[in-house]
């Protein structure tokens, strides 16, 4: 985590000098301490880390593709004035267990234009879809399947 903060500091500073590095190290250490004590973050070495990293990159790639595809679908609906559009509010159960996976699923659904996560409560997710076609099989979506694999 310290390295991530330090790299972010260098990127924002835009130059590498002794003063920048010293200030960066001090601020990164402070931020690291804050995250560990107040927010409870822990860095754990995981033997499956490399495999998971590949799965996370694949997930992010899929998310990007889905975001762009959904953007075109909603643009089409805008130019056809939403002809035959059926907005829907859908409640469904998610099989994900951890809060992190559920939050990731909710954010992924919202980032995909045409669907917005309204609420997640006790394993139930409420999604508003601009058109019924955008919410077909949303409870068995690719995002959910990939997150299940990451969670396992």
């Amino acid at each position: 985590m310290f390295i991530l903060f330090f790299l972010l500091w260098l990127l924002m500073a835009g130059k590498v000098t002794l003063a920048v590095c010293l200030w960066g190290a001090a601020v990164s250490a402070l931020m690291c301490g804050f995250c560990r004590r107040v927010m409870g973050y822990r860095w754990r070495w995981n033997r499956r880390g490399f495999g998971q990293l590949r799965a996370v990159i694949r997930y992010l790639g899929n998310l990007l593709v889905e975001m762009l595809k959904a953007g075109f679908v909603v643009m089409k609906l805008i130019y056809t004035r939403g002809r035959d559009m059926e907005p829907k509010l859908i409640w469904f159960d998610t099989t994900l267990h951890s809060d992190r996976a559920r939050a990731t699923l909710a954010d992924s659904i919202t980032l995909t234009a045409g669907t917005i996560t309204v609420e997640t409560r006790e394993g139930r997710v409420c999604v508003h879809a601009l058109d019924a076609s955008l919410a077909e099989n949303i409870e068995k979506s690719r995002f959910q399947q990939e997150l299940e694999r990451l969670e396992a």
Partner: peptide, 26 residues
């Protein structure tokens, strides 16, 4: 298109989808 969608859609939640196009694709 996102701004046009804000005018063409008729309900707050629907309009949010139009704005989301700008957030993602735009």
């Amino acid at each position: 298109s996102a701004v046009l969608g804000l005018y063409r859609f008729d309900y707050a939640l629907n309009r949010m989808h139009a704005a989301a196009v700008g957030d993602a694709l735009g």
